[in-house]
Every structure is written in C-alpha cells, then in structure tokens.
C-alpha cells in the first residue's frame, strides 16, 4: 500500500516526518502502525487518505494510486481521525446525514444509513442531541460511524482511542473488532502496544519516520516477553546487588533504573513469586513489586536500545502535541502576517 514514502515539512527546522516508510496491508486484515507521538503515523495516514501529498514514494489503496486517482481512492476509504472530526453544534444524526449526502447518497439513503449507524454504535438515544452533550467516548464512536457511512472497504483509524478512559477504550475495541470480522481492511495507528496487540494482525513499528520493526504481535512480543516485573529497593546499592540474584530468573538481562530493577518475562506471576523468594533468601529488603504489561517504551527499549520519543505515555501532553509534525502541519509557519 505504501512504498518508500517521504514527507518533509518545510520550516525553520525541517521535519522529516516520513523517511522512506513502506508497508502493505493485505485485504481484510488489520495493520497496526505503532509508534510514539511524532513518529510519522498520522502523516502516513494523511497521505494514504489523499489529504496530503507525499514528497517522494508512492502509495495506493486497493490498486488506486493516491496521487493520480485521488477521487477513486476517496470513494474506497473511511477515515476516523485522532481529533474527532465532527461538528459539535450539529446532532449525531445530522452529522452522519451530512457525510452521507457528501458521499452522494440521496436524502432518504443518508437518513436511513444514519439511523442504522446510530443503532449499531449504541447512539440511537443520543442521535437527536447536539454533540456538545456527548462524552469523549461517544464522540469517538460517532466519528467512527461517520467514517463508515459509505461502507468503505478500507478504513483508516488514526489513534482511535487516544485520550479515552479504559471503559470507552474497551467499548471502541469491541466495535472495531466487529468491523474487522466483517472483512474491512484496516490501517490502525496507535501509541499503545496493547491496542495493536488486541486489534492488529500485523504490526509495523515506526520511529522518526522510519520503520524499525515489523511482524505479527506474537513475533514482536516474543522478543519482549509478555509482562514486566518491576521490583523497587530502598537504595540503588541494594538494587545493583539484587540484579545478581534476579538475573537467573529471566533469559533477558534485567534493567536497572535507579532503585528499580525490571525483568521482562513470559510468565509474570510465577517469576514474581520466585523473585520475592530469592530476594528474601538473599536478605534484600523489597520496598515494592509491580507486574505490568510491556509498554511501547519497553518495545522501543528492546528494539532500539533507546526509549521512545517524548510523550510515550500516550496522552497528548503539553510537550508532545506541538512537537508532532503531523498534528501541527496544518498551520505550519503560516501566520496572519501572510494575509493580504
């Protein structure tokens, strides 16, 4: 689908948002584009959805070149963005009807389709209310519904759950899961390993505009372990000596971060129990122990040896947002000064 894409955003500091990114999504499958803020995920989606022109490389959707046959591509795709692109002064039904009309349905078809989608997304009660009254999760669901109005065979989901609470995220995952079951081809971008793991058939990890790894979720996690045991000690000296005790418990070298030692393992609870027993026997006092899923940070650490770019925690934090080339591309360097 994408081959050697390059996108450079001009400006004082040239941002190479995409630096030769290639990937393909087989029909009827889900590809997860995984990476931190500013990795170039959104830029890739924008190029594939004909919003942005690539500086080099080619991309196609179901055999149609995104540059030469943009009109054809637009009839085949649905796009749900990370900023819910819906009009908050319109009702849910009106938003969907508008999109229907703009995909050249008749008035009646658009109304019927809007009704169907509201039911499908559990929004039929809220369909008559303006979006101002919707929760964040409801908005995302409506945004997704809007992307599906024309029943597109290809769907782009750009960070569909970023900023959502866990419950809304679960709900949305369920919806996406159903869609995929129906045979839609999906390109999903996400900052969450868990999300890619849940939804994607294949994962492509991008960083600084380049593909750094690709494979099935299982392949990626095989190199990573399925959980992280994190043990906290009273001081760094204890932590350093404890590494020797903990090292035999895992095939991968433990990571020391100050007073914390982290073990990436396949069977978390078993290793945790063994770790506590071993540390107790060795006479090291444990202050705390947590067990968690590997994060994007861990993926990056294992793939590149360095931590993911800023704001890898996922929330579009105050420092993360402006640094994202894709997100800030719209007004790039153009101010009111240009006005005639």
């Amino acid at each position: 689908m994408a081959d050697g894409l390059v996108k450079v955003f001009p400006g004082r500091r040239q941002v190479r948002a995409l630096d030769g990114v290639s990937f393909a999504v087989p029909r009827g499958t889900v590809l997860g584009l995984l990476g931190p803020n500013g990795a170039g995920k959104t830029t890739a989606v924008r190029i594939l959805s004909t919003i942005l022109a690539a500086d080099a490389g080619t991309a196609s959707v179901l055999g149609h070149d995104v540059a030469a046959e943009a009109g054809a591509v637009r009839r085949l795709i649905g796009l749900a963005g990370q900023y819910a692109a819906v009009d908050e002064n319109l009702t849910g039904r009106e938003n969907l009807r508008m999109v229907g009309r703009l995909t050249h349905m008749t008035r009646r078809q658009a109304t019927v389709r809007a009704g169907e989608l509201l039911v499908q997304f559990g929004l039929s009660d809220a369909g008559g209310r303006t979006l101002k009254t919707y929760s964040g999760g409801m908005r995302r669901r409506l945004d997704l519904a809007a992307a599906l109005v024309a029943r597109p065979p290809v769907l782009f989901l750009d960070e569909p759950t970023t900023g959502l609470d866990p419950q809304s995220r679960q709900d949305l995952w369920q919806v996406i899961h159903t869609l995929v079951g129906a045979g839609t081809t999906v390109l999903l971008t996400t900052q969450y390993l868990e999300e890619a793991d849940r939804l994607a058939d294949r994962i492509v990890v991008v960083d600084h505009g380049q593909v750094i790894a690709a494979g099935t979720p299982a392949e990626l996690k095989a190199g990573l372990g399925t959980s992280v045991v994190s043990v906290t000690f009273a001081d760094t000296a204890t932590a350093v000596t404890a590494v020797a005790v903990l090292a035999p418990l895992t095939p991968r070298p433990p990571a020391v971060k100050g007073v914390i030692v982290e073990l990436t393992v396949d069977r978390g609870p078993v290793t945790a129990t063994a770790a506590l027993r071993a540390l107790d026997q060795a006479g090291h006092e444990v202050i705390g122990l947590t067990l968690r899923e590997p994060s994007l940070d861990d993926v990056f650490l294992s793939l590149t040896g360095h931590r993911a770019g800023r704001a890898a925690t996922g929330q579009p934090g105050p420092d993360g947002a402006p640094a994202t080339p894709a997100a800030s591309a719209a007004p790039a360097g153009r101010g009111p000064g240009e006005i005639p």
């Binding site: 959805s49 919003i51 963005g81 692109a85 703009l102 024309a150």
Partner: peptide
C-alpha cells in the same frame, strides 16, 4: 480547519 472537519471533508469523494 482546526477542529479537523476540513480534514474529513478532504477525504470524502465530494
């Protein structure tokens, strides 16, 4: 432009 609605328009076959 800044709410992303133009983005949605641009990806539609309108």
């Amino acid at each position: 432009l800044h709410t992303g609605l133009l983005e949605r328009y641009r990806a539609l076959p309108m």
